[in-house]
Nucleic acid binder design. Structure first.
Ligand SMILES: [Mn+2]
Ligand SMILES: [Mn+2]
Ligand SMILES: [Zn+2]
Ligand SMILES: [Zn+2]
Lengths: 166, 166
DNA sequence: GGTCGTAGCGCAACGCGTTGCAATAGCCAC
DNA sequence: GTGGCTATTGCAACGCGTTGCGCTACGACC
């Protein structure tokens, strides 16, 4: 059950002579995670480091199950419950955002730039992102109705795409 | 494992002298189920009868788990997988319609009169039905966008109600 | 570098829903 | 009423996600 990681620091220290964190790489929202966690009394653990390494290599949508599988490749001792709990933490920091696919399974938006919902066709099984303008229409309609503030990202709407209607 | 039911016929025969099926009771969409099933080569089984008896006593929304529990009260040998499969069958006949609550659990609309979606407030946990006119706006917005035909009933949209916004 | 309070870990068990399979039992036709 | 085709059942196992608990180890402070 030992984790033979070299250090508990934020970077993996490939070049110990690299003085500037930003040197040679684009500044990434992931760079500050360790400090942001510690600043709130939370901790930077090997398990969390693994998940963040995995998230770094993803853009857009990933399944929770995929993330767990990928973590397991980097660290075979990975436990699902730990991954789920860490995803919760990262969601509170705004670094990921989860939604539910048509079958209810969790799907993560990594570093979401613009919030969007999904459409799922029960005919062909395809999925689309709802365009921002269309999303805004939905949000507005429900705001006007009950003053309800919709969280589009959490939901995927089912139905039939144009091609699948008779 | 014996089911000591008196008969395999549609009615439970409380008064063997009741000649007219409609006598003394309102005609119910449930009355024809046995025949509708048989007409499609499907079967009318004790397990299905139990579930229909349970559904008869419900109007509006029920959880799959609730239905299973109630079936178990009538017949302690009830098995979840059978209930789920029968619910599928009844959904194909249009007698129930399932959706997903905010946590993903299944919720059944029994004899849905008008199709509607749900709102769920992540603040207070309350749930509302989306009013038909507002639902229509959503349906229209997505029809106009990609020609997508929305199935509102299947989804509940998350967000914050008026009272829960700061 | 050493102490210590507590956040986080792994584990085991649970809840909901689905699926494959062998045995059962509707129901239709005779 | 009997026979036979096959839809349906129960079971066992699985997949996804959550939760409670006792032990570990992060990291703030000295
Ligand atoms: Mn569904
Ligand atoms: Mn959710
Ligand atoms: Zn389609
Ligand atoms: Zn609320």
């Amino acid at each position: 059950m030992r984790h033979n990681r070299a250090s508990n620091e934020d970077r993996t220290l490939p070049q110990p002579d690299s003085p500037n964190p930003a040197r040679g790489s684009v500044a990434s929202p992931w760079d500050g995670v360790a400090d942001r966690l510690r600043a709130s009394g939370l901790r930077w653990t090997p398990q969390r480091r693994t998940l963040v390494e995995v998230l770094r290599e993803h853009e857009g949508h990933v399944t929770a199950t995929d993330l767990i599988a990928r973590c397991r490749e980097l660290d075979r001792t990975t436990t699902p419950s730990t991954v789920y709990r860490t995803l919760d933490v990262l969601e509170n920091l705004g670094l990921v955002r989860h939604g539910h696919a048509a079958d209810g399974r969790e799907e993560y938006h990594v570093l979401p730039e613009h919030v969007h919902g999904h459409l799922h066709c029960v005919g062909c099984g395809a999925t689309w992102e709802i365009r921002p303008e269309t999303g805004a229409l939905i949000v507005d309609a429900l705001a006007a109705d009950l003053g309800f503030s919709v969280d589009l990202t959490h939901v995927t709407i089912a139905g039939r795409c144009q091609g699948c209607q008779e």
